[in-house]
Computed example of a mutant assay.
Amino acid sequence: FRSTEQETQSPGKPAYVRTRTYTDSVIVSWQPPEEDIIVRGYICGYGEGVPDVNWKYVDASNRNVTITNLKASTQYVVSLRAYNNYGKGPVVYDLIYTREESDGPTPDTLTPPSGLRAKILSPNTAWLQWNDPSLGRPQTITDNRYYNVHYQALPNGKTLSVIVKALRVVLYDLVPGTKYEFKVRTVLDASASPFSVSAFNRTFETAPGSAPRSVNVEGIDQSNNVRVQWRTPRQPNGDITGYIVFYTQDQDLPDREWHVNALPGTSTEAFLGPLSANTTYFFKLQARNSNGLGPMSDIISYFT
Rank of each mutant, 00 (worst) to 15 (best):
V50Q: 14
T232G: 14
S122E: 08
V217I: 02
L70P: 14
E205P: 01
W127R: 10
D132R: 05
W130N: 02
G87R: 01
D250R: 04
A207M: 04
D298T: 10
W230D: 00
R227D: 06
K13N: 09
T280R: 11
I163F: 12
Y97I: 11
D108E: 14
N69Q: 10
S122A: 05
I163G: 12
Q235V: 08
Y46G: 01
G87A: 06
V187K: 01
P233C: 08
Q152F: 03
S193M: 07
Q229R: 13
L285V: 13
Y86H: 05
L293F: 15
V65R: 02
L121Q: 03
A190N: 14
N131K: 14
E101C: 12
K183F: 10
Q251W: 12
N131L: 13
R2N: 15
T142C: 06
V26C: 01
V149M: 03
Q286G: 05
R99Y: 12
Q152V: 09
Y97S: 15
E205R: 04
K56S: 09
K158V: 12
H150S: 13
T241S: 02
T125G: 01
D221L: 03
S122P: 06
R145D: 04
S223E: 13
Y180Q: 09
S102H: 15
F182N: 03
L272W: 03
S214I: 07
H259Q: 15
N131E: 15
T98Q: 08
G209E: 04
R227N: 11
V245M: 00
P107E: 05
A153N: 07
Y16R: 09
L263C: 11
T142E: 15
T203D: 00
Q152K: 05
T186S: 12
P123I: 02
T304G: 03
S114M: 13
